[in-house]
Amino acid sequence: VLKALERTRQLDIPDEKTMPVLMKLLEEAGGNWSYIKLDNYTALVDAIYSVED
């Protein structure tokens, strides 16, 4: 979780936006981090930006 938060902080995305999206992605992935961690957490960042749209 810390590495995911560090990555999104680099992009000026607050933890308050990151955590709900991260928890949803983890739930959808059955707790499997490998998809979320791919390409420096690209799936997480993309999911956060899609929620903002």
Results as ranks from 00 to 15, higher is better:
Glu28Phe: 07
Asp46Cys: 12
Gly30Tyr: 08
Leu38His: 15
Ala43Gly: 07
Leu44Pro: 00
Glu16Lys: 08
Asp46Tyr: 11
Glu28Thr: 08
Glu16Trp: 15
Ile48Gly: 02
Ile36Val: 08
Trp33Met: 04
Thr18Tyr: 04
Ser50Leu: 13
Val51Thr: 14
Gly31Asn: 10
Val1Lys: 04
Trp33Pro: 01
Glu6Phe: 07
Leu2Met: 12
Pro14Phe: 04
Glu27Met: 10
Val51His: 13
Leu2Glu: 15
Ile13Phe: 05
Ile13Lys: 01
Asp46Phe: 09
Leu26Ala: 00
Lys37Tyr: 13
Glu16Ala: 09
Ile36Gly: 01
Met23Gly: 04
Ile36His: 00
Leu26Glu: 01
Ala29His: 15
Ile13Tyr: 03
Ala43His: 10
Lys37Ile: 15
Leu22Asn: 00
Ser50Gln: 14
Glu28Cys: 11
Lys37Ser: 15
Glu52Val: 12
Glu28Val: 09
Pro14His: 05
Trp33Lys: 00
Met19Ala: 03
Leu25His: 00
Ile13Trp: 04
Glu6Gly: 04
Leu5Thr: 04
Pro20His: 11
Leu26Arg: 00
Asp39Glu: 09
Thr18Ile: 06
Lys37Val: 15
Ile36Lys: 00
Thr42Phe: 13
Ala29Ile: 08
Glu52Trp: 14
Glu16Asp: 11
Leu26Met: 05
Lys3Thr: 08
Val21Trp: 03
Ala47Ser: 07
Lys24Leu: 06
Ala4Asp: 04
Val45Phe: 05
Val21Thr: 07
Leu5Glu: 04
Val21Pro: 01
Asn40Phe: 05
Asp46Ala: 15
Leu11Glu: 08
Asn40Gln: 06
Leu44Gln: 00
Ala29Met: 14
Asn32Gly: 07
Leu22Ile: 06
Lys3Tyr: 08
Glu6Ile: 10
Arg9Val: 04
Thr18Val: 15
Asn40Val: 03
Ser50Thr: 11
Met23Lys: 09
Glu6Ala: 10
Val45Leu: 12
Glu28Ile: 12
Asn40Cys: 07
Arg9Ala: 05
Asp12His: 14
Asp46Arg: 13
Tyr35Trp: 14
Trp33Gln: 00
Thr8Trp: 07
Pro14Ser: 06
Asp53Thr: 14
Asn40Gly: 07
Ile48Phe: 03
Pro14Glu: 07
Ile48Pro: 00
Ile36Tyr: 03
Ala4Asn: 03
Leu2Cys: 13
Asp12Pro: 04
Lys24Ile: 05
Asp53Trp: 13
Gly31Tyr: 12
Lys3Pro: 03
Val45Ala: 02
Glu27Gly: 08
Arg9Trp: 06
Pro20Ile: 10
Leu11Gly: 04
Glu27Pro: 00
Leu26Cys: 03
Asn40Glu: 06
Leu11Phe: 08
Ser34Tyr: 15
Arg9Gly: 05
Val21Arg: 01
Lys24Val: 07
Thr8Ile: 07
Asp46Pro: 01
Leu44Ile: 04
Ala43Trp: 07
Thr18Gln: 02
Asp12Met: 13
Val1Gly: 03
Asp15Ser: 03
Thr8Ser: 04
Leu25Asp: 02
Lys37Asp: 08
Gly31Glu: 05
Ala4Tyr: 04
Leu44Tyr: 02
Ile13Glu: 03
Met19Pro: 02
Ala29Val: 13
Gly30Gln: 13
Ser34Thr: 15
Val51Tyr: 14
Thr18His: 03
Val1Thr: 07
Arg7Ser: 06
Val1His: 06
Leu11Pro: 01
Asn40Ile: 04
Leu38Gly: 09
Leu44Arg: 00
Ala43Asp: 03
Gly31His: 09
Asn32Ala: 08
Glu16Arg: 05
Tyr49Phe: 13
Leu38Arg: 14
Leu2Pro: 07
Tyr35Phe: 09
Gly31Asp: 07
Lys24Arg: 14
Ala29Cys: 14
Leu2Tyr: 11
Lys24Pro: 01
Leu25Ile: 07
Pro20Cys: 10
Pro20Met: 13
Thr18Phe: 03
Trp33Ile: 03
Met23Asp: 05
Asn32Asp: 15
Lys17Asn: 07
Pro20Thr: 10
Thr8Asn: 03
Val51Arg: 12
Asp39Ala: 09
Glu16Ser: 12
Ile13His: 02
Arg7Ala: 12
Lys37Trp: 11
Leu25Glu: 00
Thr8Arg: 02
Val51Glu: 13
Met19Glu: 01
Lys17Arg: 12
Trp33Cys: 02
Leu5Val: 03
Gln10Tyr: 12
Asp15Met: 03
Glu6Thr: 08
Thr42Ser: 15
Arg9Lys: 05
Leu38Asp: 11
Leu44Thr: 00
Leu22Met: 04
Asp53Lys: 12
Tyr41Phe: 10
Glu28Pro: 00
Val45His: 02
Pro20Trp: 12
Leu38Trp: 11
Asp53Met: 15
Lys24Thr: 06
Glu16Gly: 08
Thr18Cys: 06
Glu16Ile: 09
Tyr49Glu: 06
Gly30Arg: 11
Met23Thr: 09
Asp12Phe: 10
Ala43Cys: 07
Met19Gly: 03
Leu22Ala: 01
Asn40Arg: 06
Lys37Cys: 15
Tyr49Pro: 03
Gly30Cys: 12
Glu28Gln: 13
Leu44Met: 02
Asn40Pro: 00
Glu16Val: 09
Tyr35Thr: 14
Met23His: 07
Val21Gly: 00
Ala43Phe: 10
Val1Asp: 04
Lys37Glu: 15
Thr18Ala: 15
Glu6Asp: 08
Gln10Val: 06
Lys17Glu: 07
Asp39Gln: 09
Glu6Ser: 07
Thr8Lys: 04
Met23Pro: 00
Glu52Arg: 11
Leu25Trp: 04
Asp12Gly: 15
Pro14Val: 07
Tyr35Ser: 13
Tyr35Glu: 10
Asp46Trp: 09
Tyr49Cys: 11
Ser50Cys: 08
Val21His: 06
Leu11Val: 02
Ala4Pro: 01
Ile36Asn: 02
Gln10Phe: 09
Asp15His: 03
Val51Lys: 13
